[in-house]
Design a protein around this nucleic acid. Sequence first.
DNA 1: TAAAGCAACTTGTACAAACAAGCGAGACCA
DNA 2: TGGTCTCGCTTGTTTGTACAAGTTGCTTTA
Lengths: 245, 245
Amino acid sequence: MARYEHIAGELRDAIVRGDYPIGAQLPTEAELASRFNAARGTVRQAVAVLVAEGLVGTRQGARRIVLGSERSQSFAELHSFAQWARSVGHQAGGLVLDSHRRPSTPSEAVRLAITPGEEVLVVVRLRRLDGEPVLVERTVYASWIAPAVEKLDPACESVTQELYEAVGLVFAYGEHLIDAVAAGAEDARLLGVRRGSPLLRQRRTTTSQEGRPVECSDDRYRAGSVTFSIRNSTTANSLVRRAGD
Amino acid sequence: MARYEHIAGELRDAIVRGDYPIGAQLPTEAELASRFNAARGTVRQAVAVLVAEGLVGTRQGARRIVLGSERSQSFAELHSFAQWARSVGHQAGGLVLDSHRRPSTPSEAVRLAITPGEEVLVVVRLRRLDGEPVLVERTVYASWIAPAVEKLDPACESVTQELYEAVGLVFAYGEHLIDAVAAGAEDARLLGVRRGSPLLRQRRTTTSQEGRPVECSDDRYRAGSVTFSIRNSTTANSLVRRAGD
DNA sequence: TAAAGCAACTTGTACAAACAAGCGAGACCA
DNA sequence: TGGTCTCGCTTGTTTGTACAAGTTGCTTTA
């Protein structure tokens, strides 16, 4: 592990432990540098991690302050439903309901950076959390990854992990659009809710390490089952609000 | 403007302009350093900005690649409904429907870091976008800022901006919980939708520059009116998925 | 008494240098 | 032909230094 990551970890632990309660000031860079016997630049890099996590606020001239004390998840947990579930102490399940190939629509072609009409693989999965159905996933895979996806166990828990182990594919980058929609007939039946009841929708496009789009998906969470959490500040943020659709 | 900000801007423009299309490689750090006549560290800082914005992907050993070409909004737009609306070419409106003081509930006291039972100011606002009602805001303000809030024009467009001009308050940090809920009777009436129809809910707590909680709010968007957009990667992210409530 | 200004402190920016670590392509070998 | 290895390239980490810029509290001044 890098030196700055170690220092960031120590500081994070101290914050989570309550050594630096919310609202308190963090030691100065000079203080931390001497305490960890590191250069100031290294300490700055460590603190930058906590700032990015939203645990610490910083502004020029003033001591840094603690904004939060909850450890946030890493992206791996975010992206892999199963791994996220495990990390927060829940049991994830999955089941493929449908899987077939068809030509891509124009909008899918754009999102997956393929030629319109090129064949894609469509997979519908129902995901459970502690046995309860909470999520309907409708995923469109680019054809170059389709064979590997079709070989997966229909009840496979973590698609992300299986694909990594099978072909070394890493889901590295994601773009997400989040809004609310009414449950359609199929959504309602699968999730055990009434038609028209509220669902949290997450449309995402996932890209490999090399920048190649892998999949785009329409995920619908039953209301009350899952909440997205975000921390941000006037500087540095990745959340955007958009009008309409 | 800082040197690295200038370089970041140039690169961002080049990407938006299409000089480096999605999937293309960015020049190496050495190349950029000589082109901008800057030290490598400065170039790294510039590129880090684009990486944080999700426009560029990076991994050790390989050239950086372009992931997206849309300019994302700054946090000011995120947080101030009116300013965000203006920046995307829409007209925002607001109207205070109710405003009264009452003792804080225990959970509000925790979120605002005040003593339970201490008086707070509750304001209900209906927000419009191009004349259409799209958002019901139920905001709880800590008592120390309440007088300034009560002095605001009920039809005030941007609360954030007015408070900044009036008392120099800056909304610097925010924590957000996003999920979907069914419209209650009041929500439905105000937004002109049916009871039980889906709403996108954003619960947020806002903190001043100094780390002092200012307000917490329950904002409900009419389905289809607004979408949240997020970019992230395996490294560095601020989005967390949570189970239940 | 209140405003203005100064001084110490703290974080931000920029440069330079050296080494570590991962990637990719071509060379090499079985 | 197919796998392995090596080497050059590129990004990541760390240290050190110097100065810029914002904050805060104290002092001075009107």
